[in-house]
Design a protein around this nucleic acid. Structure first.
Lengths: 118, 118
DNA sequence: CTGTATCCAAAGTGATACTG
DNA sequence: CAGTATCACTTTGGATACAG
């Protein structure tokens, strides 16, 4: 054996960084979350869809359900016809903002060095 | 028009957060990057593969090439036979660590609230 | 209006064999 | 040893139609 790093603590399955990436991965995750952060009040499904266009109904629903399961977003249904459903970012969701901002800041600071189209 | 958020600054194509997510997305991106950060010296391809198992050669190559293009990793080829290629994290790559650490910290702090298997 | 269901295309990933 | 090539499979996402 020349070299063996295989027993170091791996950034594997239960690694918080990997979990974090899973949380915000997906084409529309950040756009939706960011919108809800900016709006910071209840928004109707259709308004949100317009704000995050051109997302499809299916994808918006799927991502919102995932955020809801993670307690990043609340979903409130009004017993009306036509239906009215409002989504709103939670305190937990908002607490992500400073972290995401520091990410964005690093990205802006180093955009040039990273070259390639990003 | 009842509500119109569609002209707010969108977290769209050129949003730094989206760019950041693209940078670290993919099943093996974080595990590889984290390993290179921890090791912090030149590593041979095969040693790295063992350290990030069970990644395939194809995926390790692909991800390393992408990091190289983004200047997060250097690649040095030695004119030997059998071939010897060493990869090493750059200063730019290392500069990502505090940011990733704060990500991980947020995740650890809120793991319970996020519930669901993560 | 807010979904769900279906079908399809594209992207991501793994297994394996092969090359210099 | 360090890749590349090929193929199969899975996951993701988009388009469209439809239901309550």
């Amino acid at each position: 054996m020349t070299n063996n790093f295989s027993t170091l603590p791996v950034a594997g399955e239960s690694c918080p960084m990997v979990s974090f990436v899973n949380l915000i991965s997906g084409k529309w995750a950040i756009p939706i979350l960011y919108r809800l952060m900016v709006i910071d009040e209840p928004v109707r499904f259709s308004d949100l869809q317009r704000a995050v266009h051109p997302i499809t109904q299916k994808e918006l629903t799927r991502q919102l359900r995932q955020f809801e399961a993670r307690k990043l977003v609340t979903r409130q249904v009004f017993a009306q016809v036509p239906p009215r459903v409002e989504y709103q970012i939670t305190e937990l969701g908002k607490s992500l903002r400073p972290t995401l901002d520091s990410l964005a800041q690093w990205m802006r600071n180093n955009a040039e060095q990273l070259q390639e189209q990003l």
